[in-house]
Amino acid sequence: MLIECGFVRATTSEGAEFTFTPSLGCIAALGSPQEIVRLYAGLHEASAARDAAYILASLCDQDDSTPLIGWTDEDGSHPGQMPEVEQIIMARHLMQHGIAGKARPGDSKDDGKFSDKFEASEYIAAARVHLGLSSADAEALSMTEFQMMFEMKFPRKADGKRDVPTREEYEASLAAIEGRRAKRPES
């Protein structure tokens, strides 16, 4: 279990273990791209306890997380063994690693820019195309893992730019190759 990539394990006083996976696939299952961002934002608002419980229940690898996080029914609220404040902290940790990533804190030029949606499918596709992963393997990555792997595959140059061509550079290179092929004599 890679805690530094966002994966978490919690154990009750009775010894029951619960694991939580902030993978791109699990994050996508939380709701629409806009709902995912609203849930993350809700962890810093009055709805934090409710949103944290939903996130933990959704990202838990076990079928029944109620002994740990509790539940609400027609009889009211039934707390689990984990206090609400710890649930909020854990949910924030999972969402940070599942959405924003923490591979290189403070390294991104996009720090602080808001987006009202999180398109997990784009990152899953990028992991499949650029990192050569299967759908299942790409969906299992946390955003932190994705960032670390992408950085290893496409390291930054000394000037801070990635060694990946822009679309325009790529298309110009393809045009040049096609031009050279067209000029070659037929064999």
Score class of each variant (00 low, 15 high):
177 I>A: 04
66 T>C: 09
89 I>E: 14
110 D>G: 06
178 E>F: 03
102 K>D: 00
174 L>H: 12
27 I>P: 05
10 A>T: 09
137 D>E: 12
125 A>C: 14
166 T>G: 14
61 D>P: 06
172 A>E: 15
136 A>W: 01
137 D>L: 03
182 A>D: 12
24 L>T: 05
181 R>Q: 13
75 D>R: 11
154 F>Q: 09
30 L>D: 03
172 A>K: 15
186 E>S: 09
50 R>C: 01
166 T>P: 10
48 A>Y: 08
34 Q>I: 11
8 V>F: 13
44 H>W: 10
132 G>D: 13
83 P>K: 13
175 A>L: 12
76 G>T: 05
37 V>I: 12
18 F>H: 08
152 M>E: 12
41 A>G: 04
100 A>E: 06
83 P>Q: 14
4 E>P: 00
24 L>A: 07
158 A>L: 15
177 I>T: 14
135 S>R: 14
151 E>I: 04
24 L>D: 11
84 E>L: 06
12 T>H: 06
108 S>V: 01
151 E>Y: 04
163 D>W: 08
107 D>N: 04
76 G>P: 08
65 S>L: 02
74 E>F: 10
67 P>C: 03
38 R>I: 07
43 L>N: 01
126 A>F: 01
113 K>V: 09
79 P>R: 14
84 E>T: 01
39 L>A: 11
30 L>R: 08
71 W>G: 10
27 I>Q: 06
35 E>Q: 15
30 L>M: 11
61 D>L: 06
164 V>M: 12
181 R>K: 06
70 G>S: 10
145 E>N: 05
35 E>H: 13
165 P>V: 11
133 L>H: 07
21 T>Y: 12
180 R>H: 11
136 A>G: 08
164 V>G: 02
77 S>C: 08
178 E>T: 07
39 L>H: 02
43 L>K: 02
151 E>G: 00
181 R>W: 10
179 G>T: 12
153 K>Q: 13
168 E>R: 14
130 H>F: 06
1 M>C: 01
34 Q>H: 05
104 R>P: 00
9 R>A: 15
17 E>K: 05
88 I>F: 14
127 A>F: 07
81 Q>A: 12
86 E>M: 12
85 V>F: 09
103 A>W: 06
66 T>M: 06
20 F>Q: 13
162 R>F: 12
181 R>H: 04
150 F>N: 07
140 A>T: 01
155 P>I: 00
19 T>D: 00
145 E>L: 01
4 E>V: 08
57 A>S: 15
45 E>F: 04
126 A>I: 04
129 V>R: 03
75 D>W: 09
175 A>M: 08
80 G>W: 06
3 I>E: 15
78 H>G: 08
29 A>N: 13
104 R>T: 04
155 P>M: 06
156 R>N: 07
6 G>R: 02
99 I>W: 04
62 Q>C: 07
70 G>T: 09
105 P>S: 01
5 C>I: 04
118 F>A: 04
77 S>H: 13
6 G>P: 12
129 V>H: 08
63 D>H: 13
54 Y>P: 05
76 G>E: 08
49 A>I: 09
68 L>I: 05
10 A>V: 09
